[in-house]
Each structure stands twice: as structure tokens, then as C-alpha cells.
């Protein structure tokens, strides 16, 4: 019989039994490696311009060619990935933490706090996220340092809703009463029961958020919002190469390929997680 030790091991087993999920996870790991570790080993930096060799094709010296200012494309891509992926991950973490805390407080304590917080969250989620990010960027101004906050704000709403739903779900349960009767403090109750209840959906939302935020980040980069050249960012690289889209498609194709690869892998991983974490309570 299928006797698992815990839902967690069952989830892990299901996840890794799907070849697509495994492949996608591997791709993501490779990408992270390429963008965060590789730069230390590169000869050229993303800043090194050399007008004499601009717009060259692939060569031994520059495996992916050079861009319109003579910069090495491998470096541009790698550092660009570091920026794009890093910002995306950071924004997701910020959104998850803030959204999670808001949702937890809102759901657990209810009352007027809940009411006002949910009005704000509803207002935020009624605006499409790209536009919300644009609005926030506009307020925050140009600064690259602030870029991440705009993305984070656009991503908070779903986290708040999810955690609040889980908190509400738990707050009504009798075993909470029992726990408190046994002397557990509110904080402990929150930590154990709510966390356990919300974890699967939360994890899935994190992956979804990464994918969505990545897209918004690249779009904003493409629209040249919040990115100061010469900082590379995949969307921005696309914009820079756009003028040469017919003559030298390589300049646009490379960042697009990187973006698509990342988002497709994230989506596959998200689907895999959804399948493996879906049921509450095993096979039957």
C-alpha cells in the first residue's frame, strides 16, 4: 500500500515523477547559475565598450557577439539576468512578506482592521498589475533603487488575499479554541495552524508571482522605466536591439529567448507544484 510518512514527501514524490517538472527545475537552476555565478568567470564586463568591434557576430572572443556599443553579449545577458531575476525575486519576497503579514493580521483579528485592509487590497487588485506597476514607478521616480518597490506593490494583493482566507478558515475552527484553552498564545496558534494550512497555496502563489513579476519587470525595462543605462536588464536589452530587429536579429532574439525560457520553466514548475500539492489528505 502507499504509506507515506507525510504529505510533504508525497508532494515531493509526485513533483519529481513528472519529467517536465524536473527538466524545468533544472533549467531554472542552470539559469540562476549562469546569471549569478558565471559573471565571476567572465573576461568582459557589461560595461566594457569598444566601438571598434561593435555589432560583430559570434567569434571565439565573444561567443554571442557584441552589441551596438561593442559590449560582449554574453556579459550583457548574464548581468542582465542577474538584474532581472534578482529584482524579480526580491520584489516577490517583499510582496510575499508584506502581503502575508497583512493577510494574517487582517484575517485573524477581523473587525475594522480587516475591513479597511481589504478595501485597500481590493482597490489594488482591481487595477491590472502592469498598470499598477507603471503608476508606482511613476510616483517613485526614476531611481533604479526604487524599481523593486513598484513591482512589489503590484504583487501584494494576491498574497494578502490568500493568507487572509487561510487565516479566516482556521480562526473559525474548534481546534483553535482548544489550543488556546490549553494555553497557547495567539502567536503560537497563528504560527502553527495557519502556516500549515496556507503553505501549499502560498508556495504556488510565489511561483506564479515570480513569473508574473518577471514579465512586468521585463516590460518595464523595455519601456525604459526604472532602468538606468548602462545597467542591463533583459527587457531593456530587447529595447536596445529593437532597431536592428531586421538586420541583426540576434540582439533581440537572445534576451527574448532568455525571458521565454525562464517564464515557461516557471510555469511548468508552477503546474507541477499545483499537481503535487493539490489534494488535502492523500489519495482518497
Amino acid at each position: 500500500m502507499k504509506n507515506e510518512k507525510s504529505p510533504r514527501s508525497r508532494a515531493v514524490r509526485i513533483f519529481f515523477s513528472d519529467p517536465w517538472s524536473v527538466a524545468a527545475t533544472a533549467v531554472l537552476l542552470l539559469l540562476v547559475l549562469a546569471c549569478f555565478v558565471l559573471p565571476f568567470f567572465l573576461k568582459y564586463s557589461y560595461l566594457d565598450t569598444d566601438f571598434t568591434i561593435k555589432l560583430q557576430g559570434p567569434s571565439a572572443e565573444h561567443p554571442l557577439g557584441t552589441d551596438l556599443l561593442g559590449r560582449d553579449m554574453v556579459a550583457r545577458l548574464a548581468y542582465g539576468g542577474r538584474f532581472t531575476l534578482g529584482i524579480t525575486a526580491l520584489a516577490t519576497v517583499i510582496a510575499a512578506v508584506i502581503g502575508g503579514v497583512l493577510g494574517l493580521l487582517s484575517g485573524y483579528w477581523g473587525g475594522r482592521l480587516d475591513f479597511y485592509v481589504m478595501r485597500v487590497v481590493d482597490a489594488l487588485s482591481s487595477i491590472p498589475s502592469l498598470f499598477l506597476a507603471i503608476v508606482m514607478e511613476c510616483a517613485l521616480g526614476w531611481g533604479q533603487g526604487n524599481f523593486v518597490y513598484g513591482l512589489a506593490i503590484a504583487a501584494i494583493a494576491p498574497f494578502a488575499k490568500i493568507v487572509r482566507a487561510a487565516a479566516l478558515d482556521v480562526a473559525g475552527n474548534e481546534y483553535i479554541e482548544a489550543s488556546r484553552a490549553l494555553g497557547a498564545s495567539g502567536l503560537q496558534v497563528m504560527r502553527r495552524h495557519v502556516l500549515h494550512n496556507v503553505l501549499p497555496v502560498f508556495i504556488i502563489q510565489i511561483v506564479n508571482c515570480l513569473a508574473d513579476t518577471l514579465i512586468i519587470c521585463t516590460i518595464l525595462g523595455y519601456m525604459q522605466v526604472g532602468i538606468n543605462p548602462p545597467t542591463p536588464e533583459w527587457g531593456n536589452l530587447f529595447h536596445l536591439g529593437k532597431d536592428y530587429i531586421r538586420s541583426i536579429p540576434r540582439l533581440t532574439f537572445l534576451p527574448v529567448a532568455a525571458i521565454v525560457l525562464t517564464t515557461v520553466s516557471l510555469n511548468i514548475v508552477g503546474n507541477g507544484l499545483r499537481d503535487s500539492l493539490s489534494t488535502t489528505g492523500g489519495d482518497r
Binding site: I219, G235, I245, T252, V256, V260, T263, V264, N267
Partner: peptide
């Protein structure tokens, strides 16, 4: 559907341009 939904719109636009225009 899964592949399409994973691709951001300007990449799709890029694809279109590459394919149909170029």
C-alpha cells in the same frame, strides 16, 4: 495554451514581427 501564456506580450510581438515581417 501553456506555452503561449508563458510568453510575455512583447516577445510575442517580436515573434510575429520576425516571422511575418522579416
Amino acid at each position: 495554451t501553456m506555452v503561449i501564456s508563458a510568453v510575455p506580450s512583447f516577445c510575442i510581438a517580436f515573434g510575429f514581427v520576425m516571422f511575418f515581417a522579416v
